[in-house]
């Protein structure tokens, strides 16, 4: 039965999966186990499937993924902190035949970029926003973000977020889903094989809807920041399931311009 050797299995015709060529050969700058890498890869896989390597412009944020343009082998522009949706607006209006997307963390999208996010959504810009929500400012050392959970510890709330003094976490995704310019909103995660497959389908759907000029499409990916949360990657994924998902439940929030009840 198993007289076939590993050498015989490892032949090009037996290839099932390998990293997409739309990611460069540079080693990712992310911490071991960080969901940013998986999110990058599936966005690039979707663009590869669409045959849109030369027809897509990505807008990189400020945050750990500030260097996304080093890894995503497509045209990219890095934006000032939080301003990616404004830059994407300009790019899409000038080059409407391109797929245009932003890739933003929660500090970028839900704190300093709140205005740009809400107004681009409200204008119904025909762009796709990929929102990586890890509940923390990863890049700068794990400070509290608007998305930090109640009682969750961060470097600027070492005893946990006290909602009495620090306010409640902001569910930007539910908030922008209310806006008529927004066509498709979903929340996914990429820490399991099933999650990766579902998230990739959601990103594909968002890009397809952008092609059909349906308005703004928004994919939140609830992700880990194992370094900021001070856990191992595997622990952080478990913690995310137990703590992030109850507050940020996965699934579609708005489909075909209609809120899911």
């Amino acid at each position: 039965m198993s007289d076939i050797t590993k050498e015989q299995i490892r032949q090009p015709e037996n290839l099932v999966y390998t990293k997409t060529k739309l990611l460069t050969d540079k080693a990712l700058s992310y911490c071991p186990g960080c969901g940013h890498g998986t999110a990058h890869r599936i966005v690039m896989e979707v663009i590869e499937e669409l045959g849109a390597q030369d027809n897509t412009i990505g807008i990189a944020p400020v945050g750990c993924s500030v260097l996304a343009y080093e890894f995503m082998n497509i045209d990219m522009q890095q934006a000032a902190h939080g301003r990616a949706p404004a830059v994407a607006t300009a790019v899409k209006r000038l080059l409407p035949d391109r797929y245009v997307f932003t890739y933003q963390g929660d500090g970028d999208l839900a704190a300093i970029g709140t205005a740009e996010t809400i107004h681009a959504c409200n204008r119904g810009e025909n762009i796709t926003i990929i929102f990586i929500n890890n509940g923390i400012y990863g890049m700068t050392g794990g400070q509290m973000a608007p998305t930090t959970l109640p009682n969750m510890k961060a470097s600027t709330c070492p005893y946990g977020r006290d909602v009495e003094t620090m306010g409640n976490p902001l569910k930007m995704t539910e908030l922008i889903a209310q806006l008529p310019g927004v066509h498709y909103v979903t929340r996914q995660a990429v820490h399991t094989p099933a999650g990766v497959r579902k998230t990739k389908k959601a990103i594909r759907k968002a890009f397809d809807l952008q092609k059909q000029e349906k308005g703004l499409t928004f994919v939140e990916i609830v992700s880990n920041c194992n370094s900021g949360w001070k856990m191992t990657p595997v622990q952080s994924n478990k913690w995310m399931e137990e703590n992030m998902f109850p507050f940020y439940p996965l699934g579609d929030i708005k489909v075909d311009g209609q809120l899911i009840k």
């Binding site: 299995i9 037996n14 390998t18 820490h191 990766v196």
Partner: peptide
């Protein structure tokens, strides 16, 4: 597909 760094290549017969 879950490897954040995309370092695994898979073959099947």
């Amino acid at each position: 597909i879950v490897c954040p760094d995309g370092v695994i290549t898979v073959y099947k017969v």
